[in-house]
Computed example of a mutant assay.
Amino acid sequence: MGAATNTNAASADDGVRLRKMLATDLPAAHELSDALRWPHRPTDWKQAFSHAEGVVAERDGTVVGTALRFRWGPQDATIGLVIVAPAQQGRRIGHKLMSTLLDGLDSHRVRLNATLEGRGLYERLGFVRVGELRQHQGIAQPAPLVALDSGWRLRPAGASDAPVLKALDAQACGMPRDALLDELLAEAESTVVLDDGGTVRGFGLLRRFGRGHSIGPVVAPDAEGAKALIAHLAGMNAGRFTRIDIDADAGLAEWLEAMGLLRVDAPVVMERGPASQPTAPGAPRGYAIVTQALG
């Protein structure tokens, strides 16, 4: 990763030094996110790091900042887990971390989900707002099943469905993420597919994340299909802490709140580089993301 591997080039005058993130930095990274009350478990950090190139900021031998980038194919990338210790903020550490990550990505479309605090920094680096997320969470309540049209049904995913699910995910998010999907499918407590007369048109996953369970990704051709998938998975997790991060334009917010999953945050989706293409009617669409770091 360009400058991230060049310690001297990434050094700062105030004693802050940037370097490539190593697996041995994960406990310190978890401490940083825990200090901000982010829900990530050590396991969640390990999963993200396994798909990432990361950079850390050190001061007096202590990790005071992190940032990860994820390359998805030759032209797309996401950035996440950009953290600066509260006591070290205001020293432009976040800017240095981001500049290091963006090195070599000038031809890429780069996407991230920005907190209110980080939005100004990202705008100065050339990112523009392209949408919003809605983070919903709470103790899931049993939800009435959503009626599907004749010939449509929900069924458990089988091993032979994996290639189709990876293709649907790539179409929905615009990025090939086969290795990530392989891992998510292997670890999911439940994967359910939306089947139209033998053709898989969508899917959703329920898996462990953070303080409990997370629903996502969810891919479907329309909102009713997404509701059917989410209602089924939330019902499986009824009585337990459940989180889902949805596209704000999906039209699902009020419906989720009726299921006990209240909105707690609204990050802004930002991109830099070539613009994403609009989703064609009837094409697979992402209704819920994996995580805010991974997209």
Rank of each mutant, 00 (worst) to 15 (best):
213 H>I: 04
9 A>K: 05
81 L>C: 06
207 R>Y: 10
255 W>G: 10
37 R>G: 14
150 S>F: 08
57 A>L: 07
226 A>V: 13
78 T>M: 06
232 H>V: 03
43 T>C: 12
287 Y>G: 11
167 A>Y: 04
183 E>I: 02
138 G>A: 10
166 K>P: 04
153 R>H: 15
121 L>A: 05
163 P>D: 08
258 A>H: 10
218 V>M: 11
42 P>C: 11
76 D>A: 06
146 V>S: 11
128 V>K: 03
207 R>D: 12
256 L>V: 01
286 G>F: 09
176 P>I: 02
273 G>F: 02
288 A>F: 10
183 E>H: 13
139 I>W: 10
3 A>Y: 05
239 G>V: 13
148 L>H: 13
63 V>W: 00
239 G>P: 03
274 P>K: 06
244 I>C: 13
260 G>L: 14
100 T>N: 05
12 A>I: 11
256 L>S: 02
227 K>R: 15
77 A>G: 05
109 R>E: 07
282 G>K: 09
162 A>M: 07
54 G>D: 03
119 R>N: 05
224 E>F: 10
28 A>K: 00
107 S>Q: 07
207 R>A: 15
180 L>N: 02
221 P>Y: 11
72 W>D: 00
170 A>V: 12
252 L>V: 02
160 S>R: 02
236 M>I: 12
119 R>T: 03
123 E>A: 10
73 G>F: 05
190 S>M: 07
2 G>A: 11
111 R>S: 06
285 R>S: 13
28 A>D: 00
289 I>W: 15
169 D>L: 05
203 F>L: 04
23 A>T: 08
287 Y>C: 08
165 L>E: 09
229 L>T: 11
216 G>V: 15
213 H>G: 15
148 L>E: 10
133 L>D: 04
70 F>V: 00
9 A>L: 12
91 R>L: 04
246 I>S: 04
159 A>R: 14
270 M>Y: 01
277 Q>M: 02
268 V>W: 03
21 M>F: 14
34 D>V: 09
285 R>W: 12
34 D>Q: 11
292 Q>E: 04
228 A>P: 09
206 L>T: 12
161 D>W: 01
14 D>V: 05
68 L>Y: 01
197 G>N: 10
237 N>A: 15
163 P>Y: 11
92 R>N: 14
247 D>L: 07
199 T>F: 09
141 Q>F: 10
40 H>C: 12
207 R>T: 02
111 R>E: 07
225 G>R: 06
269 V>K: 02
196 D>R: 13
2 G>F: 07
238 A>H: 13
122 Y>A: 03
40 H>G: 01
69 R>T: 00
241 F>M: 12
64 V>H: 00
272 R>I: 04
204 G>Q: 09
90 G>K: 01
192 V>W: 06
80 G>T: 03
261 L>W: 10
166 K>G: 06
